[in-house]
Design a protein around this nucleic acid. Sequence first.
DNA 1: TAGGAAGTAGGACAAATGACCTGATAGGCG
DNA 2: CGCCTATCAGGTCATTTGTCCTACTTCCTA
Lengths: 199, 199
Amino acid sequence: MARMPLAQRRQQLVDAAIAVLTRDGVPKTTTRAIVAEAGTSLSVFHYCFDSKQELLDAVIKALVNTTVDLAEASFEAGATRKEMVRAGLEAYWSHVVANPDHHLLTYELTQYCLRTPGYAEVARQQYEHYSHAFIALLDGIGAKPALPPEVMGRYLAALIDGITLDWLVRRDDRSARQVLDLMAQQIDEVMLLPESTPA
Amino acid sequence: MARMPLAQRRQQLVDAAIAVLTRDGVPKTTTRAIVAEAGTSLSVFHYCFDSKQELLDAVIKALVNTTVDLAEASFEAGATRKEMVRAGLEAYWSHVVANPDHHLLTYELTQYCLRTPGYAEVARQQYEHYSHAFIALLDGIGAKPALPPEVMGRYLAALIDGITLDWLVRRDDRSARQVLDLMAQQIDEVMLLPESTPA
DNA sequence: TAGGAAGTAGGACAAATGACCTGATAGGCG
DNA sequence: CGCCTATCAGGTCATTTGTCCTACTTCCTA
């Protein structure tokens, strides 16, 4: 193997671990599978990380960051308010459909954190981020919520989380799209105050 | 150990497995932990089941049944339509709060099924049951849906699933209750046609 | 250019785990 | 009562998995 500075090798192992986690799931992600994916050896692994747990720390940090970035970046442009809402959901949804394993892994890691002493807080922050992302979206659109934004954010985050999980389980595209449409409609027609129509 | 007929011993091992799964999670549920919980030996285990997988089959069947029963039984009486909806959600929610480990395990097993070849269909059926339970609830209430019942059922099932997961992660009772209230309100005021007011 | 540190290689080891085997024993049935 | 089948006990084996150790190589630097 080509020699590589420590930081770079660490990053490579984190990437390899994410690849294996995504492809094979948490239980099958052994240290040997990770180093095989990275094309290196066990000794290199323990040269870079004290333990498997320390690597998982780094993996979780990396994944949470990308997931949050995704959630925040998903909600962007559109012409009318209704279009912006739909565009945001659409952006998120196309990422789900294109990367089902990524999202499945997110759920798995959440579970892992809940079961691993000292990691519950990590999962907690992850879910805080989700609802905050929705609040920020609605705020960014310039929408006037008809309800407390906090409650709306959590409602919508829970809803999209449930829709995602349902699709990951049943892979029913038509059903998912119908429910997403209903969600967009609910947001626009029910949860936000009517737009001030320009004269 | 007292001698016991095969079927009874099997049931005992399934119960023990559920206890360990609930308490310690899927990864820590080893055959040894199961037989220790049941107070028997490994040999008894392999006398009753060919493999750990075969036991898990039985466990999943048992758990899915109880979960579905719960979901269906949760939705019962109340005076007005609004009260019935709230009572149904309340019944479900009190079970969640009283048995968080049970519900956490449900999510874990869903993941397990998705990752285990040949078990995806089990998870799929589980989620079918959830939305059907909602459709049946609304139908049982005698409510006139303002939307296709199929879509509403999936929307509500996804929503309650997301709310449950959010609470399991953040354990924020106040937030959960607010979102549940909003859900009840949405159902009553938006998703169902107005009740025909008696003269 | 020599020395030393940073990085790599491969093997080894103990613990955990699923699976199984042989012999003992209980308890119904003739 | 005595047999014989169903049930149980304990030990054992092979595999997997995380961890680590020692020796080797590359590369920077004084």
